[in-house]
Design a protein around this nucleic acid. Structure first.
Lengths: 190, 190
DNA sequence: CGCGACGTTGATTTGCCTCAACGATTGTGG
DNA sequence: CCACAATCGTTGAGGCAAATCAACGTCGCG
């Protein structure tokens, strides 16, 4: 059940069986039903989670109250409001499950304890954050420099499985397109 | 001369005088004239730099060959292509000085040696990366959810000193606006 | 079954881009 | 030191990509 998180971490450091068990012991396995809000704007994010199964969205509300999807997180990816989690400040984002989810969660205190015990994991987690950073960087570039059609094409290439499990209007929001426009782009009427 | 980098790092960890000197000994001080390209797309980024003085831009070229500015880096901020630097892969971005600059540079080998010697710095650098991440996150949100005018207003609030030292068309590029549109926004003719 | 969530389509509007021309300023080589 | 070329910002005209508004069909679910 926990093999994937270990795979994700051992891509960057090697671990003994004992160390693997230590890591696992720090994480809490938890199931959430579909459409559960696991982080509300205004709250401090108390978890950093690894997605074993299911799919989530992270999003902000704009001034008119409509959702702006920042990321989708599915199997073998991490989800948290990193800056709220580490700096203890109230989050501005929401995190909802889109499907029934199974997550491995860790609190800040436990994560710090884990890192004290296995400092070689610092490296793995740093790389994890860097990956997130690159993803944002590329999306920002796309969002500034590319047309809606191009952004959608790139999205399909990069995340071919997401459209099969996520409502189209959320993908539109993620891409910064209106649902109507995305519908037309898909139709080729653009 | 190196007090600012120490301040930036000791916001998150405390250090003895000896440790401070160790850190400084790992960094190389270097001056660059205005309009120097310090990273070319295609190269591996060999440095992570702290800006003592001056201002730089990081940017991509789009399909038509025009610049898309990703970030400005000025005093007391870091500049590098983080993913190229750590993962040793060719960068897709450029980094140029906009003014004469003074930087403190470190190579990956030296940084790893420094972190082995002072593992408590891991924390400071992790927070640094998180800060970068939050900045991208907020800009992505702005870029998806806000109008050109709103993005400019936020930019002015957040970086009031940048317009005084950076050409307006680069700010337009940073904001994902054409230079003409930014000119009109500033005039209030929008 | 009936309602709400979702996607599609058409008509219209609009924010911003592109193209073009033109001053002002800066920088540079003869 | 001046002349000329870049660079930069501004303004106007016209066009287009994508948003908005509105209506409607479909599906899944309580």
């Amino acid at each position: 059940m926990h093999t994937e998180i270990i795979k994700a971490l051992t891509s960057y450091v090697s671990l003994t069986q004992e160390e693997v068990e230590t890591i696992i012991s720090f994480y809490t396995y938890k199931k959430y039903p579909k459409k559960t809000i696991i982080l509300h704007a205004g709250e401090v994010c108390k978890f950093e989670a690894f997605v074993i199964k299911g799919c989530l969205k992270t999003y902000f509300l704009d001034e008119t109250g409509s959702e702006v999807v920042l990321t989708f997180a599915s199997e073998n990816w991490w989800v948290s409001d990193i800056s709220s989690f580490y700096e203890g400040k109230p989050s501005k984002m929401y995190i909802d499950t889109l499907e029934a989810c199974e997550l491995l969660l860790i609190t800040l205190e436990d994560k710090e304890a884990l890192l004290r015990q296995l400092p070689q994991l610092e490296r793995a987690f740093r790389i994890m954050i860097q990956r997130h950073l690159s993803v944002y960087q590329e999306r920002l570039f796309a969002s500034i420099a590319l047309s809606a059609k191009e952004r959608y094409a790139i999205f399909l290439e990069k995340y071919p499985s997401i459209p099969q499990r996520v409502p189209q209007h959320l993908i539109a929001s993620y891409l910064g397109i209106s649902p109507e426009s995305l519908s037309r782009i898909r139709r080729g009427r653009v």
